[in-house]
Design a protein around this nucleic acid. Sequence first.
DNA 1: ACAATTTGGTGTATGTTATACACAGATAGG
DNA 2: CCTATCTGTGTATAACATACACCAAATTGT
Lengths: 233, 233
Amino acid sequence: MTAKSVELLWGSAERPSRGPKPGMSVEQIVAAAIRIADAEGLGAVSMQRVAGEFGFTTMSLYRYVPGKSELVDLMIDTAVGEPPDLSAIPGGWRPKLAEWARLTWVVFQRHPWFLAEATQRIMGPNQLGFLETAVAALGQCGLTGEEIMASVLMVNGYVRSLAPFSGELAGASNEWGNAVGALIRQHADRFPALNAAIAEGAFGLSEFDDFEFGLQRVLDGLEVYIERGSARR
Amino acid sequence: MTAKSVELLWGSAERPSRGPKPGMSVEQIVAAAIRIADAEGLGAVSMQRVAGEFGFTTMSLYRYVPGKSELVDLMIDTAVGEPPDLSAIPGGWRPKLAEWARLTWVVFQRHPWFLAEATQRIMGPNQLGFLETAVAALGQCGLTGEEIMASVLMVNGYVRSLAPFSGELAGASNEWGNAVGALIRQHADRFPALNAAIAEGAFGLSEFDDFEFGLQRVLDGLEVYIERGSARR
DNA sequence: ACAATTTGGTGTATGTTATACACAGATAGG
DNA sequence: CCTATCTGTGTATAACATACACCAAATTGT
């Protein structure tokens, strides 16, 4: 399953000359699947549903994609999109990496289904490209390869992990936050610290930007380490 | 579906007096489901499979649990386990929060299926208890409730996001890492920074502890902020 | 032009899910 | 005793991925 994904993601497909003209294309199929996932979640993406989007039958999809797993692989890399060029951003690694984190954030905002599926899968050119830009941003800091990779993993991990809460914490409805808040208040004796935090504004709907706060903390931590390193030399 | 989960997780179930004696219990069912998920992944947990573990039919499970979604809710909170008591750890918030992160890490190591499902679900007593201990550790630092919550979210997010890679990066097989490494080397021209990082040891199997490295960076970042705040006062 | 080859789309079948529903047997309270 | 209540079962349904055989279309070589 992975092998075919690699070919689809990284290889160049040659249009066969014989046979009837195809009624769809892999690109169209992937785009339609992403459209469905964006609107109704990954659960709404079934082979039948995607094929139906073109007026074809379920099985017709298998002429373009070996299976659903591979389709999701393609969806992910396409949803990531063209990796950015951070080289024009001045000020060293920090603003570059911050911008990189924010761009990653935007991807997660646009494609919420992404997070449930994007770990430990085969990486496509776009996804690897994103990784490349971050690693490049840290190239001149005196870190070892291992440290660079761990740092990027840390920043990406932070962004990734916060994304599911973003719409909720900042948004209007905040159904999940309200449910949790109600539970905490209902069991105030068991969770005193949580209650105190709530009384002070946590889980609220203020202007506080959870994402930027945490991002700056993470980058501060990296900065401390980098500066300590260059002081050593 | 969520309402029933709240009752199961937070309510006290009273044994009805009439009718036959139940052949299973919710606790046994949840334990069996966790055992299966630990060994073969969440995908192996089907109602049939869990019921079969007791020699009963699929439908018998529905006498104990309203549906699979609720079963997973219960699995998660049970897998989290009793929240720790960090109050005896000396040295202020930092070692407490570090220990908290490591304990969370252990949970993810023991129950790898956890990560795919634990976001945005209803929180059980154990899960909220874990949250409570972390919030309590940051209670005396002069942070606002919003800042505390964002900080805990940041640390937890970091741990959570790194967990899927742990077995791979540190382990012996590292199938995923090898596949990615091969792709990067194969397209060296497109990913120069990544190649340089690999040449310097990234994606390798050294002693480098990705988890502790990132954790210390994250905590450093928090420390900078906390100290800056107390200097202001 | 014609036959062979290759390919796209369809219809049908299989196996796996979760879960609704009706029923049979067990159990305890009145 | 007998009736309400509860447990476990059997059957049915609907959604899902996907294997396979088939027909029709389009191009290539003769």
